[in-house]
């Protein structure tokens, strides 16, 4: 069969984009190769590792499990966009200070997921953090430092 193309329009990191792409293109391939936002990574392309986590219409999702065509008309935010808005600048600084990343490949996805957790603005234990973040794989850190960073920002934001 021939390659079916589709024109998609969406807002990515605050900018309206319009591109004609093969319908089979998943969202993160689209964002990376068509738009050049390379902060979202591909680790498994089957929904397990979480490296491709992006925000679509306010919710964090696996970017490899969504066709770009499905995001037509949506607001998409990647690590680059969320960095620009400053929404998690405190968390990003804490990740650096606490060395809650090593190779950095999981980090954008980790931060996108943590952003959603921190937006809940509730008390949480280390176990709560670990459970919420359990869909994001990191091979380097052993996770302890990531839990530390998220815990400390949550406490700061709650005024602790």
């Amino acid at each position: 069969m021939s390659e079916e193309m589709i024109t998609v329009n969406m807002t990515v990191n605050g900018e309206a984009v319009s591109k004609t792409i093969p319908v089979r293109t998943h969202l993160v391939d689209f964002i990376r190769t068509e738009l050049g936002f390379t902060g979202s990574h591909l680790g498994c392309e089957h929904g397990v590792c979480g490296a491709c986590s992006v925000r679509v219409d306010g919710d964090v999702v696996r970017g490899c499990l969504l066709l770009a065509a499905q995001a037509d008309g949506c607001e998409v935010l990647t690590i680059e966009g969320i960095t620009d808005t400053g929404e998690i600048s405190d968390l990003q600084e804490k990740f650096v200070e606490r060395n809650a990343l090593q190779c950095g490949y999981c980090t954008p996805g980790m931060l996108m997921t943590a952003a959603e957790l921190l937006a809940q603005k509730t008390e949480m234990s280390r176990d709560d953090i670990r459970e919420y973040m359990s869909g994001n794989y990191c091979r380097c850190t052993g996770y302890h430092a990531i839990v530390d960073a998220i815990e400390s920002i949550n406490n700061e934001r709650l005024g602790g």
């Binding site: 998943h26 089957h46 929904g47 490899c64």
Partner: peptide, 26 residues
């Protein structure tokens, strides 16, 4: 049928499933 796609999309990416058409009901 493409609903949430959280099981369908992995099988597509792995080429375990090769449908002719996806019907997106989202």
């Amino acid at each position: 049928i493409l609903a949430g796609g959280q099981s369908l999309m992995p099988t597509l990416n792995m080429r375990l499933s090769q449908p002719e058409i996806l019907i997106d009901i989202n």
